[in-house]
Structure formats: C-alpha cells, structure tokens
Design a protein around this nucleic acid. Structure first.
Lengths: 126, 126
DNA sequence: CATACTAGTTTCTCTTTGGTAACCGGTTAC
DNA sequence: GTAACCGGTTACCAAAGAGAAACTAGTATG
C-alpha cells in the first residue's frame, strides 16, 4: 500500500487520479466540435439559437456533424433542445446551467489559442 | 461595416475570433492523448521520464501512439527530447517552458472531470 | 548463447470520424 | 405551382485514428 509520507507514491496516486479525471472530461468534451458548440452557445445565451443559424456561424461544421454532436451534448445534459410551435416549426438550442460549468475549459482554450497565435506570428517575424 | 456601438455585431465579431482561437488550440492540443501526455509530464517535472515509463503509466496508450504524439508535441515545442548517453541509451522527455503554458487547460479539464464524475455518481445514487 | 531491457518502427487491420450530396416532410412567399 | 426556407436524416465514401503484434538494433545479464 502507498505510504502516506512517501511523496513519490502519493504524488503518483494523485497523478493517476488526475489523468483519469482528464480522460473522463475528454470522453465527454473531446472531438473536433463539442467544445466549439458549447463556447458558441455560451456566448449567445441572450439569443435564441436555431439549427441553421449555428451551422452558418460555426465555421466548417456540416449538418450531419452538428446534428450528431448536439444529440450527444443533449444526452450529457450540457445543451437543451426546445421545439417551438412557430410556423414553420423552429428548434431552439441553448446551453444548460450544467453546460455553463464547462466555461472555464473553453476560456483557457481560447486564451491559449490567442497567445499561441501571437507566438507563431512572432516567430515568423523575427 | 460593424457599428462600434452595436453590441450584437461587436459580440458576434468577438465570438468568431474566440472560436478561431479555440480551433487553433484544438488543432495543436486536440486528440485522445496530447493533453494527457502534457499533464503527465507537467506532474513529473522533478523526475527523469523515459519512453517506457510513460507507456506504463499513461493508461492504455500504445507505443505507436506515444511515439507519434511525442513527435508532434516536440514539433510544437511543447515537449523536449534528450538522448542520454547512458548504457543502454535512454531518452528523457520533459515538458518545456512553453509546454507549461498549457497547464491552465489541463487544470480546468481535471477539475471538470472530477466534478462531472461526482455528478454522475450522485445521479445514480439519488 | 539465450533472455531481457532500452527505444522505438513497421505492418496490418479495424473503427471512428468526418465530408458531400441527395433527400424528406412541412411551411411560406411569389 | 414552384422556389426557398426550416430541421434535420440517410447513403456513400475517404481519411484519420488507433490497437495488436511483429520486428529492429544495441546492451547487458546469467
């Protein structure tokens, strides 16, 4: 058994738990589109978002992938889907309260992406 | 042109830049293993990490994938590879200073994974 | 001389991912 | 009536992802 005072072993145990937690996150949030969709919906909480609108505004996503990813996000309670009895019928997608808990993840990814781009541009100019 | 004072349009422009930044991040950090490897190396900065050790301790990764992912991380200057003239020859992998800038991303993913697991367990027990 | 360890690479295969394009039913505008 | 919009689904196909197992090459051990 791990000795409480052995930093090496304790750290190793913590590490493995951390990696398992990260695996859990990546299983739910991983892939090409899920975090993009969540970020998009988080930024538009004040608007009603329809399927076609998302497809137009998330660069490069196809109807097939958007449909598939939205289903999976809905299953994991991160996104809500509401049919509105308008004519023609429209469907409103929105981030759920639980979905908002992913905000810190997308926030760090946005920030890292911005600084990474700066780094690349600097390395070209120098 | 976008009106400076039109919150809708300004927000939309910001959103699209945010999504582009996230796409940049996901292109470099996305996939099944890269963030796992970076987290593992970040946690072991005080140790010398060899190839076989990583393969044993990152659950489920194959030699092929580990080799491929390490190459890509090295290309992006996130991981360093140092051949040590021991006998037998060993190769030490380490996180770079730039690689450490990814820590906020893995941190939020670990935290989200932990709370997500709690949520799942609660929803089973209730 | 056989075994085992380091650090991978190669081959083969299967699965997953993802894109294109056609298509569906319903509604509305011309 | 016909074209266009909404919210998708389906079929087809290509590319990428990923695992298993065999293999290379050098060193060291018994």
């Amino acid at each position: 058994m791990a000795k409480i005072n052995d930093n090496g072993i304790v750290r190793e145990a913590n590490c493995s738990e951390e990696l398992m937690a990260m695996r859990d996150s990546l299983d739910v949030l991983g892939g090409k589109w899920k975090l993009m969709i969540l970020r998009f919906l988080t930024n538009r909480t004040h608007q009603v978002i329809h399927f076609k609108k998302m497809q137009r505004e998330i660069d490069g996503i196809s109807a097939k992938m958007l449909s598939k990813e939205l289903k999976e996000l809905e299953t994991n309670l991160l996104v809500s889907r509401t049919i509105q009895e308008t004519k023609p019928i429209t469907v409103a997608y929105a981030i759920t309260e639980y979905g908002k808990s992913v905000l810190p993840v997308t926030e760090t990814l946005v920030n890292w992406g911005l600084s990474h781009r700066e780094k690349i541009i600097d390395s070209i100019n120098k």
